[in-house]
Amino acid sequence: MSRLHPYTLLAIAGALPAFAWILPAPSGGTWTAAVALVLTLTPGESPGLTGTGASSGWRARLIVLRTAVVTAAPFWLFLLLLHDVPTTIAIGLRITTMVASFVWLVAALAPARLVEAMVASGWSASVAYLLAATLSAVPMLKARAQRIVEAQRCRGLSPRGGVAARMRALRALALPLVLSALHEVDERALALETRGLVPGIRRTPLAPPPDSAVERAARWVLLVACLFALVRRFTVPGVS
């Protein structure tokens, strides 16, 4: 899957949540959530959320799946507190689809390939970089958080134990994480500027990913199918 054109990956990751919200609940959400969760088990390309996405091993794929499930779980809890069971299932499946699609996209799509694809199709390099940086921000912050946890452990802070201990650990993690990220933004802005990434530039594509006619057609099919499902939902009685 990761060798697909970046636009195709984006189209799949966008279409699944769209179908989840358009198709009737809970069957629509069940299908889309199942597909999205299965996708997380496909080999990754970018370091991804887990730092292991580039590995094709099953362990790495299971970590991506676990990330999706663990991220979606709190939403189910909150929904259960606020709604009845049928509503919780209906919305929970939709949210699970959104979360799993995004987690899969981060694991499958290397930001560099997205930049190359966007530049090759005429986008400004700075806009492409902005989008790609959004995808790469999650694994970078995760790696930084891990380093901060290790540093705090060296200074005697334990991130394990009861709720109070974990809250103390969270504060000791969050503050340096946010402050160092903000500090790095400044330096990164200077570095990117000096390396020619300024608004409005037209970058030379170095290795644009191949985009086959089949993939282009598949993207159109996904778009048309979404629109068809949307129209059907609002025009056919009994579909909700």
Binding site: P111, E187, R195, L197, T204, L206
Partner: peptide, 28 residues
């Protein structure tokens, strides 16, 4: 700049690509 890790583009698979990041932005 003095800290190399903040100057990496984050958009390169290889050292060659990383070095090419700037020249490509100059549209050469």
């Amino acid at each position: 700049l003095p800290t190399p890790w903040t100057q990496v583009s984050g958009m390169a698979f290889t050292v060659w690509d990383e070095i090419a990041f700037g020249p490509a932005n100059l549209a050469w």
